[in-house]
Design a protein around this nucleic acid. Sequence first.
DNA 1: TGGATTTGATAAACCGGTATAGCTCCCGAA
DNA 2: TTCGGGAGCTATACCGGTTTATCAAATCCA
Lengths: 338, 338
Amino acid sequence: MARPTIADIATRAGVSKGAVSFALNGRPGVSDATRERILKIAEQMSWRPHSAARALGASRVDSVGMVIARPARTLGVEPFFAHLLSGVQSGLSAESISLQLLIVEDTAAEIEVYRRWASEHRVDGVILVDLTVKDPRVDELKALELPAVVIGGRGGKGALASVWADDRDAMLSIVEYLAALGHRRIAHVAGTPNFQHTQRRIRAVRDAAPRLGLLDAPSLTTDFSDAEGAAITRKLLSQPGRPTAIVYDSDVMAVAGLGVAMEMGVSVPGDLSIVAFDDSILTQLMHPALTALSRDTFDFGRQAAEVLLETIAEPGTVINRRTADPVLTVRESTAPPS
Amino acid sequence: MARPTIADIATRAGVSKGAVSFALNGRPGVSDATRERILKIAEQMSWRPHSAARALGASRVDSVGMVIARPARTLGVEPFFAHLLSGVQSGLSAESISLQLLIVEDTAAEIEVYRRWASEHRVDGVILVDLTVKDPRVDELKALELPAVVIGGRGGKGALASVWADDRDAMLSIVEYLAALGHRRIAHVAGTPNFQHTQRRIRAVRDAAPRLGLLDAPSLTTDFSDAEGAAITRKLLSQPGRPTAIVYDSDVMAVAGLGVAMEMGVSVPGDLSIVAFDDSILTQLMHPALTALSRDTFDFGRQAAEVLLETIAEPGTVINRRTADPVLTVRESTAPPS
DNA sequence: TGGATTTGATAAACCGGTATAGCTCCCGAA
DNA sequence: TTCGGGAGCTATACCGGTTTATCAAATCCA
């Protein structure tokens, strides 16, 4: 027989559909004996709930969405998303909730997707990444009344739930380490200026500079691409009084920077120390291997999923969960300045 | 008012639910005048179909699934999947069909997911990657009667639809190019031996060797990891009569191999030419930049989506579509042997 | 002009679950 | 003895669409 329905089970067990529904959902209304009999029959017939039918009655779909608005080209190289995704899924699988993933070109398209998802009831909630300053998505999601959790930033004043790590502390730990090694000229090749985490990292460098006695500590923004990372590095290494250490906001840019150093005959870590604000297999493949800040991205995703599920279960509550602090993994690309 | 239903529209237009349904789906049964009136009202009320309701009646969910069974660690580095995903989505978005993505640990888990999806009616079809020899997923999917399309391999004798590129020809073009440069000792660092494409590439090398007058052309299998790629390279470069050119089945392994060459003082491309059977930003970031085989992965995904939609629309038909041939992008890592 | 056919629409069933009102026992307390 | 009340279950409405049977009016054709 094709996919059995609860009606089939009811007939077979000689009870009503309602009784079967009660039994299968572990709610009162049937005796233990009957419940067990129904469960056994359901098991035998290998019954599974029809997701659409369930979604129609109750108004949950057991599915959450995630939209990533970045060009696919830059997406793939960063293990960040793969790990994050796995983490999110591991957090969702406990409740056997599925994930809809969409990669779009820009934020406008992303918002369009949220609208569609909301109106078609395709998801119970969404996970946001790459929060910008004054992010339009926050208001939009509130207007749509779509539960959401922000990864890696606060969703504005009590707006959306969030899961975040302390970027500021992390950046401080990098700069302090470099200062302790003896570096006084440290440059920071940052990411897109409108990302919240970029802002936080820039501020951290600026604030720490005087305290650590740094002579110069410029933060230069980029579009996160390897091309701009390389270009900025070239510029930094060409000027007089060039930095003895550079901190890159992503592993890809750090690798590009390392390439430029080699091309210009600047030895790493002899003449230049390099630190990547994100760890991955990339940093380990290099020669020298790059000192990098490791974040437990998988766990990040897992916690985001958890928080989202809680938010869906209890709308109204706004959870802001802080995750484990990132740690600096020192490899071969950092040393005292010569 | 909260999300309008077709009943709301019907009331407003002074017609029946059925008429509204006909109008909105462009099927006969209503006059052009009425249809237009209904459409305008629907537009005004910004009506959108409730996906679950639609899925319940008709038996399509307007959603397809894709499961990737690889550890997240290796997944992220390869731009391959990000591009593929974008392509798949672009192919699906035309029909506004959504994509469910799942990353799991192994094939057993993957099959479990298919079973669940099928029984819960969560997807209309699935896209398969990394087909192995005697892949158990093929039979399983046929048993589940779940429409499917295989990316990068044939689904067995007329079993599943597929979208594939000619790996054999591609590998031949690489080996022929190296032979033309004058190389006679070419090694092939392959991927997991049970993948179909690995087999095809190995066979291509073996078949071409005598014709091209190669002295030696071993294919060595790995688990696709950077670690094994490095280890094999170390071994190859340590033996007497070492190869003057190495072809790697993935960009990550090629990069790892380049690292080993540098570490052993083997100059690239002076003493050793390196080719990657997959292009990405990774190969371009290296110094020297790696010669690599470029495939239009995005288009690959797009076509897979198209084929899947056709397969869903007309079960029974089995489409085997061949995509554009990959081309070799020559960069700095290949040269005549010294 | 009358019967056949087509057009445009309606009412109602249906998809597979969940939620709820209500019914029948049976037991215990007044 | 009667009534209250809970346990255990049934019948049924409902979620928001799609589909089918039905039907009245309009149109066609001989």
